[in-house]
């Protein structure tokens, strides 16, 4: 993550609300995004992700709150603000009857790129998205992966400050997924990128920050390094052929609690970052406990996600 003093904030949403009739789809949502960051926006279906993206891209007016993009207020100066955003909706909406070149030239002109600069902008976007040599190909004849690249190319053709990508890897094969993720990582070096996705490992692979949205509210926000600390192992699972009494395990230096799991298996709690694995192995050899398993237990992002969106944590946040 870029140090706080050097962060160039390109997108700022403050206190966004959106109601659909009586239902509040987004409530008091605020976020900030700086150049060089890839923000993973996670949330279950119906959490308010799409509504949030629509508000951030100017497709939906918030009921309250404000959005500024590259210093331009989206309500007061929508054209300038939108000119600083590149957007790829879920299932890239493309004109299948156009060629790649025709479509990108059209997008360039709608993004107010001067006519003389259009060919260069198209070439640059195609090169960045790996579309060289495809200018004359009909979009409808391209594979899904290449159509997705065309969708991303239109989003970056005007070199926007902020790029918003909604589920860019859905429906792609594993090789295409890897290529698109690499492309997103590469975009993150120059732009501020929001990546909305359901795929949790994708967030850990691609993003520098994670925000989990649940019932219209941000319930968790962390930089990736904070996330890694959060997920760090705080337990060991041991399997023993001749298990001693739990008190003997609790006496091993570094072990803070012991949970019997049955069939000679135990979960040994310890302080985060202070694994007693070596001490446990030594004690097992000394005591003849028949060590057959010694596994550090890490929390996964999925566990955090499920806890936050279905468990007590979510209820506490909602109550707050």
């Amino acid at each position: 993550m870029i140090p706080v003093m050097e962060r160039e904030v390109l997108l700022r949403a403050e206190g966004l609300y959106r109601w659909y009739g009586e239902r509040c789809a987004v409530a008091d949502l605020s976020l900030e995004l700086a150049r060089g960051e890839v923000l993973g926006l996670l949330g279950p279906n119906g959490a308010g992700k799409t509504t949030t993206l629509h508000m951030l891209t100017g497709n939906l007016a918030p009921g309250a709150g404000r959005v500024t993009v590259a210093g331009h207020d989206l309500l007061d100066d929508p054209r300038a603000a939108k000119a600083a955003i590149g957007y790829l909706p879920e299932q890239p909406p493309l004109y299948r009857e156009l060629t790649v070149g025709e479509y990108l030239r059209y997008c360039a002109r709608l993004n107010r790129i001067p006519r003389a600069e259009v060919p260069a902008a198209v070439r640059r976007a195609m090169a960045r998205c790996g579309l060289e040599g495809m200018e004359r190909r009909l979009i409808g004849n391209l594979s899904k992966g290449y159509q997705q690249r065309v969708g991303i190319a239109q989003a970056i053709i005007h070199n926007p400050a902020v790029v918003v990508l909604d589920e860019p890897t859905v429906g792609l094969d594993p090789i295409q997924i890897r290529e698109i993720r690499e492309l997103v990582r590469e975009l993150g070096r120059e732009h501020a990128v929001i990546l909305s996705t359901h795929i949790l490992p994708e967030v850990q692979m691609v993003c520098s920050r994670v925000e989990i949205i649940h019932q219209g509210r941000i319930v968790w926000s962390a930089a990736l390094d904070e996330l890694e600390r959060e997920l760090a192992a705080d337990a060991l699972v041991v399997g023993l052929g001749h298990p001693p009494a739990p008190e003997a395990l609790a006496a091993v230096p570094g072990v803070t609690a012991v949970e019997p799991l049955g069939a000679g298996r135990f979960r040994l709690r310890h302080a985060p970052g202070a694994s007693p694995a070596e001490a446990v192995a030594e004690a097992a050899v000394r005591g003849g406990w028949g060590l057959v398993e010694l596994t550090p237990e890490r929390r996964t992002l999925e566990q955090v996600f499920v806890e936050l969106t279905t468990g007590e944590a979510a209820q506490e946040k909602e109550a707050a």
Binding site: T57, R79, P89, P93, Y95, L110, N111
Partner: peptide
């Protein structure tokens, strides 16, 4: 219906 309106309205276009 084909989703292109969503994209067109995200452009700097009235």
């Amino acid at each position: 219906e084909r989703g292109t309106l969503l994209l067109l309205l995200a452009y700097p276009l009235g």
